[in-house]
Design a protein around this nucleic acid. Structure first.
Length: 420
RNA sequence: GUGAGUGUGGCCUAGCGGUUAAGGCGCCAGGUUGUGGCCCUGGAGAUCAAGGGUUCAAAUCCCUUCACUCACCCCA
């Protein structure tokens, strides 16, 4: 027997309500904020991701689904959405559009990881990118948008964590201070962090090892090392967020795992941290990425959220969804001749926009009505020998059980009325 | 890559050395002529994850493998 590959899963009809609901809210929010949809390919040249995400990140080092196609090109199933959007921005000359360009995407991403709760090898991501604007108000807009999405699907008790990790001008000094601090405490660092010290000292800050965490308490804070521009940007962002009614919690240990981030980084997490993957969504500014990919220096900021993590949290919070739609009518028949009539009627009914299910097989009327009931049809249209002879149909209201013989046209009318 | 836990019909679960492997949900069919939801009756459906051992006897004990779950690393 074949199974869905490890870390992947089928979304069965009884789960689709969540996905449908989230997709519709996503579309509403994007419309409201003026973001337009973009779909990029599911795979890209491997180099795009290596270049943008960073050689030394876990994603590039061990999580990419990379393969050679028959022509010898090295391709990778996208592990995230920002790099492809930036590639498209450059490829289609969107720097000639009015700036900033506001885009959103929703679709699957792939990372080769050991699966666990809220973490899969194929997962759905919704993300937004605002490219071509450096003003802090757009940072606030993106964060506000993320927050609004969560609110609109009913999620509550969320925490907004915020930090600034500076820019190429001021970050070197901060990294220097960090290295300095941790070098003095080198012996107490965990083995991972000893390795990180040289390659990626920022990441020591969010190490979960107990002594590393206690060391991080006293570690230099990035916001104390920001240059004037970065400091002003951060100050304004906090101000704008407050105006929008958001209460960011500045987290000096928030750094994020991708190399391209500059200045603003943020995450949104449930307040009660159940399980490990607490982050529902996050993002940040990536002012250097477009240039890194061969464009002109172009500031940008984005946000992405895992749909599965939204679903998990919605379930935990017991969020009710709008009831699933049910077919309006179910057509039952008795005998071959009536069956042919039924097939014809079903066609007409659907033509009139009435959701209709035809009884399957040649079951007893009892069995057919049982079917009608389990499908949740509001009405049953029954065609038997008598109805066939008189040119009528039996229209049965499944909620109460009243039924009457009417012409097919009358039945159509009644069905259309009840559908409103 | 590391660690822990779990694998019994489609789903949930009982059984923990000797039973025709039990029950619930779901599915199908009946409860007299062409009528659903409740109720009643019946039916289909399980090489008890796979392989190997121990034993007169294994779903039950041991080993191996695989899968799933949770956690670490990291992230959505």
């Amino acid at each position: 027997m074949y199974r869905a590959p490890r870390g992947t899963f089928d979304i069965l009809p009884d789960q689709q309500a969540y996905w449908q609901y989230i997709r519709s809210k996503v579309a509403d929010i994007c419309q409201l904020y003026g973001y337009e949809r973009i779909d990029t390919p599911i795979f890209e040249s491997s180099g795009l991701f290596v270049r943008s995400i960073g050689d030394d990140t876990d994603i590039v080092q061990k999580e990419m689904y990379t393969f050679d196609d028959r022509g010898g090109d090295q391709l990778t199933l996208r592990p995230e959405g920002t790099a492809p959007v930036c590639r498209a921005y450059l490829e289609h000359g969107m720097y000639n559009f009015p700036q900033p360009v506001r885009l959103y995407y929703i679709g699957p991403s792939f990372r080769y990881e050991r699966p666990q709760a809220g973490r899969y090898r194929q997962h759905w991501q919704f993300g937004v990118e605002a490219i071509g604007e450096s003003d802090a108000s757009i940072d606030a807009e993106i964060i506000d948008m993320a927050w609004s999405l969560y609110r609109s699907v009913g999620l509550r008790d969320l925490v907004l964590k915020l930090n600034s990790i500076g820019c190429p001008k001021c970050r070197p000094q901060y990294l220097e201070a960090l290295k300095n601090y941790y070098s003095q405490n080198f012996d107490r660092l965990c083995s991972d962090c000893k390795r990180r010290l040289d390659r990626n000292p920022l990441r020591i800050l969010d190490c979960k090892n107990e002594t590393c965490m206690s060391l991080a308490e006293q570690a230099p804070r990035s916001i104390d090392y920001l240059c004037d521009d970065c400091a002003e940007h951060f100050r304004l962002l906090v101000r704008y967020l407050e105006i929008l009614g958001l209460r960011p919690e500045v987290d000096h240990h928030l750094v994020r795992g991708l190399d391209y981030y500059t200045r603003t980084v943020f995450e949104i997490q449930p307040h009660a941290e159940e399980g490990a993957q607490s982050t529902i969504g996050g993002g940040g500014r990536y002012d250097g990425l477009i240039e890194e990919l061969g464009g002109k220096p172009t500031p940008a900021i984005g946000f992405a959220t895992g749909i599965e993590r939204m679903v998990v949290n919605m379930k935990r919070q017991g969020i009710e969804l709008p009831p699933a739609s049910r077919p309006e009518a179910f057509v039952a028949f008795l005998g071959q001749e009536a069956k042919e009539k039924a097939v014809e009627c079903v066609g007409w009914m659907r033509g009139e926009g009435i959701g209709t299910i035809l009884a399957s097989g040649n079951r007893s009327l009892k069995a057919q009505l049982r079917q009608a009931n389990t499908f949740g049809a509001s009405f049953a249209v029954i065609i038997g020998e008598d109805e066939l002879r008189d040119g009528l149909v039996m229209l049965r209201d499944m909620s109460g059980g009243e039924q009457r013989r009417v012409t097919f046209d009358e039945a159509l009318q009644a069905l259309q009325q009840s559908g409103k």
